[in-house]
């Protein structure tokens, strides 16, 4: 494992921890899309089914279990926590996730490495992860809420994607025969969407700053 991959995993992990701490500390999930969080849970569960079939390393297993449990933890807070659930913007968070899930299912059935249950589910999770941030992006555009989505959370998510691209470049040049077109193309799309997300974040932040300045 190279330093880019490890740093990417750590920033991904930190982004989730930051989001959880934020929800726990402020007892609020205003501005957080439950639909995006649920898509991430679907992504992790469908991708990490191989926990039952293959062992790669202790690191790998621990991280997979962390991603699955933490995503369900965020969902639990947003749906069932007595105080936090009342702060959820359910009227604004209306993105139709079927528009993302259904095309990803078909694409995974058509374009995959091997037509088997586990492999198609893995491919589906790669495609779905690349677009799972969209409900969050739409919610941010609607509410212009930057109070709960801290600059840290957005920064860490973006950093995670950027570091994974560096990891792929590094592996491509150092590991003979290393190539994974499905992951590369999906990852590039995902990074482009995150750049858009970051752009709206900056716009929202600047707008909020103007509004909060004394006249």
């Amino acid at each position: 494992m190279n330093i880019f991959r490890f740093a990417g995993d750590m920033t991904h992990l930190c982004s989730i921890v930051v989001l959880l701490l934020k929800i726990e500390a402020t007892k609020s999930c205003a501005g957080v899309s439950l639909r995006t969080q649920e898509l991430y849970a679907v992504v992790f569960v469908s991708r990490y089914l191989d926990l039952f079939f293959t062992f790669i390393s202790v690191y790998n297993t621990v991280m997979k279990v962390f991603f699955i449990t933490s995503s369900f933890c965020i969902i639990w807070y947003m749906r069932h926590h007595r105080i936090v659930s009342q702060t959820y913007d359910r009227e604004q968070d209306t993105f139709r996730v079927a528009f993302l899930v259904v095309p990803c299912i078909f694409l995974a059935l058509l374009v995959n490495h091997e037509f088997s249950m586990v492999e198609v589910l893995w491919t589906f999770s790669i495609y779905l992860e690349s677009v799972a941030i969209l409900p969050q992006l739409i919610l941010l555009q609607r509410t212009f809420n930057v109070d709960t989505l801290t600059s840290n959370y957005v920064f860490l998510l973006g950093a995670y994607r950027a570091l994974y691209i560096l990891n792929w470049l590094y592996r491509y040049f150092t590991e003979p025969g290393y190539s994974q077109w499905i992951v590369w193309s999906s990852g590039t799309l995902q990074t482009a969407i995150y750049c858009d997300f970051f752009y709206y974040y900056v716009v929202s932040w600047r707008k909020n700053e103007r509004l909060s300045l004394p006249s």
């Binding site: 995993d9 991280m63 490495h113 091997e114 088997s116």
Partner: peptide, 10 residues
């Protein structure tokens, strides 16, 4: 496509 790729990333 040639075989199943090794999914060693997260």
């Amino acid at each position: 496509v040639r075989g199943v790729a090794k999914h060693d990333e997260l």
